Computed example of a mutant assay.
Amino acid sequence: MTVLRLVVVDDHPVVRDGLRGMLGTQPDFEIVGEAASGTEALTVVAAARPDVVLADLRMPDPSGATLIRLLRERVPTTRVLVLTTHDTDSDVLPAIEAGAIGYLLKDAPREELFRAVRAAGRDETVLSASVAALLLRRIRPPRPLTQARLSAREHEVLALIARGKTNREAAAELYISESTVKTHLLHIYAKLEVPDRASAVAAAYQRGILTSGDARDTP
């Protein structure tokens, strides 16, 4: 089992305590440091050389894109995963341009956070649905579907993916095979003209195919 070494950067002690407790429940995560400011983060990360840094955007200087850029310059092997409450253009775009591997909001479910940390550790980009939608809007304006709309089953699959379910979990919930889920996803990608899961969820929200209610588990 590969263990990911993590540093938590946030100027709120309660947030750091909560993240440390949550992340500490996973056997493949090891918290090797924490910091309450950008200056402290640079020192801690240089010493600990973690695999992933979970960093808030707005803290005592340096913060935001400046901190991300400095972390990447000083410890290039470290991936920076932004964990914040802000998802505006002025926050997201500079962070991504500065080298953040991912951008997640603090209201994300814990399982989504765990998956994001592991994806960052594999050097895979991970974005919350709202952030992915924002980036898509910057690349191209919203446009109507040019092909057939999603079937009822495709909508069910996409809604489960939006809740952070894996293919296996979606298959179990819908009582279908994992390969069938993969086939539905391929059809969804083609209809929405997107390359992957995050883009499909973002495009579906952007076009009104999914709503905020679709992202919540029913009781």
Rank of each mutant, 00 (worst) to 15 (best):
A132D: 00
G121H: 04
R143S: 15
S90Q: 15
P94F: 07
V14C: 03
G38M: 01
S90C: 08
R143P: 03
V201D: 09
G24C: 09
T180Y: 09
E34M: 12
G208F: 00
R138W: 08
L6E: 05
A41L: 02
R143V: 13
A159H: 01
Y189Q: 11
V126H: 04
A203H: 09
L57P: 00
F114H: 10
I68A: 06
K182H: 07
I101A: 09
T77N: 08
L42C: 03
A132C: 02
L136P: 00
A200Y: 10
A159F: 03
T183S: 12
V52R: 00
S128A: 15
A202G: 14
P109C: 11
T78P: 06
E154W: 03
S199N: 13
A129G: 00
I101W: 04
V131S: 05
V7A: 09
V45N: 01
R58K: 15
T218K: 13
A116T: 06
L57F: 04
S199Q: 13
V52I: 08
M22D: 01
S130A: 12
Y103L: 03
P144K: 03
V181E: 02
L150T: 02
V131P: 03
L104C: 08
Y205F: 15
Y205D: 06
A133G: 03
L150W: 05
T78D: 02
K191E: 05
G38Q: 02
T180V: 06
A172D: 15
T125F: 00
P141I: 06
T180R: 10
E30L: 14
T125M: 11
D11Y: 12
L93M: 12
S37E: 04
L174Y: 04
D217F: 09
M59L: 14
V9Q: 08
V7W: 10
D123E: 12
G64D: 01
G18K: 10
A215W: 09
